[in-house]
Design a protein around this nucleic acid. Structure first.
Length: 154
DNA sequence: GCCAACGTTGGC
DNA sequence: GCCAACGTTGGC
């Protein structure tokens, strides 16, 4: 049974075009440092899960493409790298704290802007639209997924 | 284990 | 740049 997710990325860090240019059109989802988001990747994601690739903290936030989870979760290497902005001194190879999955582009889409999403009653339940939501990874229901795909095709 | 202070996210 | 929301930290 496929599951669905929305994953936020700042285009300045990793945009949909960066994903399209990456080898195998795949990037490791580095830098998550929130336990809830980590737990989604570690405990709930499966290869093949659908991903709404969302641009955040930018001029036009919104869904920029479709992707999928590939492989299994593994430790985020940036936590071990003192040169990385995501270095975590409390993590060790023996006891990694942060986990990621690889994400592969399915297709880039016309931007489905956040402002547009807010106007769609069918999307009103989406967690990313809820007041105060800051989680960078949120589950998406099958109904929400279908509604987003319908808007992307329109 | 409480909770105030602080830091971060992210839209606007 | 503002600020609401909320997660984390650390003193007690």
């Amino acid at each position: 049974m496929p599951r669905y997710w929305l994953m936020k990325s700042e285009p300045g860090e990793a945009s949909i075009d960066d994903l399209a240019r990456a080898p195998q059109r795949t990037l490791p989802w580095t830098g998550v440092r929130n336990y809830q988001a980590r737990n989604f990747m570690r405990d709930d994601m499966r290869a093949g899960d659908g991903v709404l690739f969302y641009h955040s903290s930018c001029a036009e936030p919104g869904v920029a493409g479709l992707a999928q989870v590939v492989g299994r979760p593994y430790p985020d290497p940036t936590q071990f790298d003192p040169q990385s902005a995501y270095f975590d001194p409390k993590a060790s190879q023996a006891a990694p704290r942060w986990v990621l999955v690889d994400v592969k582009l399915v297709k880039k889409t016309p931007l489905l802007a956040l402002a547009r999403m807010r106007r769609e009653p069918q999307l009103a339940s989406m967690r990313v639209l809820q007041r105060g939501n800051r989680l960078s990874i949120t589950p998406v229901t099958a109904d929400e997924w279908r509604a987003v795909l319908a808007l992307l095709d329109a």
